[in-house]
Amino acid sequence: MLVFAASDKGGTGRSVTSCNVVYRSALAGSNVCYLDFDFGSPTAGSIFQITDAARGVRKGGLHSYLLDTNVAPTGEAKRIDVWSRSARASLRQRPPGSGKLMLFPGDEDGGEFGPDKEALRRCVHLFQALDEEFDMCLIDLSAGRSYATQLVLEATADPALRGVTARWLVFHRWTRQHIPAAGGLVYGPNGILEVGVDAGHDRERLRAAIKFVRTAVVDPDSVELSGLRPAQVAWLRDCDEDLRNLAATWQVGRSAVIGTVPLDPVLQWREQLISDDDVVARDIANSSTVEAFGELSRRLAVDDDWIGA
């Protein structure tokens, strides 16, 4: 299965949530990989705490795998085994029964680029080969209407990938600015659907394969907010109601949502993987955050959750 992580705006927590989702899937026993297609600013290395690939690798990352016009006879894209290479001690002890967790980093000096037939050919080969090996490949795309997004839409329309399930997660914060932006990215002009149909996708099937993830959501009823004054809570409730109406207008309402990640200080201040240890022993992260990641990773694999739009 291929999972594409997209967002219209930066700062939605797309990358950090995606990293945590693949981490949860690996813990549950699936073989998973994470592909950093955020060519302008690869960050997955830092989230997984891979010391020498924090901002991508110097040579042979995904950007050069797809685009190297140099004669350098490229072979396969570079990969990093997170279980053995993470600087984080708790990650380096791979739990028994867990699956592979592999990072395909970007390049330090990568950049966005325009349409390229050769890049498309290589992208198709990459997805095909990784699908042979992994239960889930999560591809983290640059924010906005990027060429990376167009490239993967064209790649997944290629006959070579016709038997491969592809699902989309569109991340947005739960705010008045982010909701229309996310709706626009999917349904708007030059959005995912329009570009996808041009690339050869069936509109309805593609639409059914796109779900939204709300991030940094404040739950007025949560225990964390129990100290608020009644007027504040009432105001929050009004805002929430208002946002829900807005979401419905933009077709990013409840039926199109696959996950909700609560606001968590750990994610706000430092983008990192949240281990069970962070919740239980160190008590710095909220258990609801970890539960949200786990739930998202489970629902990604539940076919019934992806029927109908």
Partner: peptide, 9 residues
């Protein structure tokens, strides 16, 4: 020959 043109370059 369809070589990709990188953005911002």
């Amino acid at each position: 020959n369809g070589t990709g043109q990188e953005a911002m370059k």
